[in-house]
């Protein structure tokens, strides 16, 4: 049975007339990576700020089972520009009541793991954006927290840093409970054991990525751009064989099993009716599809 590390009960936060988080309840299990997926402004950051005690909720409660040692890596890089990498790790370590020697030792270790060992005596102001993000993460880990909260951990990272950070977070997951927020479905899908999809402050659904994808049907998704014929005519051609279809402008999202075998005859039928085929993408179901099926909108809209 999964052991609960963090329990959130009916958390609500309003800013004036805007309800940023609306009666949010969920459980995070010990040792899992729990992803908060939602578009910008969905209430993800507000939710985790309340979970970490940085923001007082209007109502509801957050219950930490067992330890309450939390590390948070905010979306913005929050650093002391005039301190070196090691100095700020030492400083924050000491703020968590670590002995100076241990803080320094752990700081050295983290810098090494995150590929910043050569920058240990460099001022934060001299680091590149990706390095700053990595240092930002190190600051959240200096006191070896039981629960690690990562707000958009891959935002602003260069591909090399992204890979490094992703691998490191995965390695941490074996020892810690990790909560991450993201508006990036790939990131959530790759990283999270379970995903909570949130929109307009409301929790829509919580489950594993695979289970969530299963809820919207089996098979692949064919994204096809059809030009020169009206939507009604295009639908008349497609729908008899592919009833699960969504339309956005000239783009048609067709979900079906074994779609590869039927693609050729579909394209022929469209061309025969005078249609032109623009861009074509074939992919597996994603969390984005889940989000679309739940809200009727894309994550980035």
């Amino acid at each position: 049975m999964n052991e609960v590390a963090l329990q959130v009960k009916s958390l609500t936060k309003e800013f004036g007339s805007l309800t940023a988080v609306d009666n949010l309840s969920l459980e995070v299990y010990r040792g899992e990576i729990f992803g908060f997926l939602g578009p910008n402004g969905a209430g993800k950051t507000t939710s985790i700020r309340m979970m970490c005690g940085l923001l007082e909720p209007d109502s509801g409660e957050v219950i930490f089972q067992g330890g309450k040692l939390v590390g948070i890596c905010p979306q913005e890089t929050i650093l002391w520009e005039k301190l070196t990498c090691l100095e700020q790790l030492e400083f924050i370590g000491e703020m968590y009541n670590l002995p100076a020697k241990l803080a320094r030792q752990r700081g050295d270790e983290l810098l090494s793991i995150l590929g910043l060992e050569e920058k240990r005596h460099n001022l934060a102001s001299t680091l590149s954006g990706g390095m700053k993000r990595r240092l930002n993460l190190a600051l959240a880990l200096i006191h070896d927290p039981e629960i690690l909260v990562l707000d958009e951990p891959e935002a602003g990272l260069d591909p090399q840093s992204r890979l490094l950070v992703r691998e490191y977070i995965r390695s941490l997951a074996q020892k810690k409970t990790i909560i991450l927020t993201t508006h990036n479905m790939d990131e959530a899908e790759r990283m999270a054991d379970r995903v909570a999809i949130i929109d307009h402050g409301k929790l829509l659904v919580t489950d594993t990525p695979e289970a969530l994808k299963r809820t919207i049907g089996e098979g692949d998704v064919l994204e096809i751009e059809i030009l020169s014929i009206p939507v009604e005519q295009a639908l008349a051609i497609i729908q008899p064989d592919f009833p699960d279809i969504q339309v956005e402008g000239n783009n048609y999202f067709i979900r079906a099993g074994g779609i590869m075998e039927k693609m050729s005859s579909l394209f022929d039928a469209i061309k025969k009716a005078g249609g032109e085929i623009g861009e074509v993408h074939l992919r597996a179901n994603t969390l984005e599809d889940v989000f679309i099926s739940l809200t009727g909108r894309r994550l980035r809209q």
Partner: peptide, 16 residues
């Protein structure tokens, strides 16, 4: 300066 840079938020979590 610490308020503006947001670093105070980080210190807040440490329960300073």
């Amino acid at each position: 300066r610490d308020i503006e840079s947001g670093s105070l938020q980080r210190l807040k979590i440490t329960r300073l």
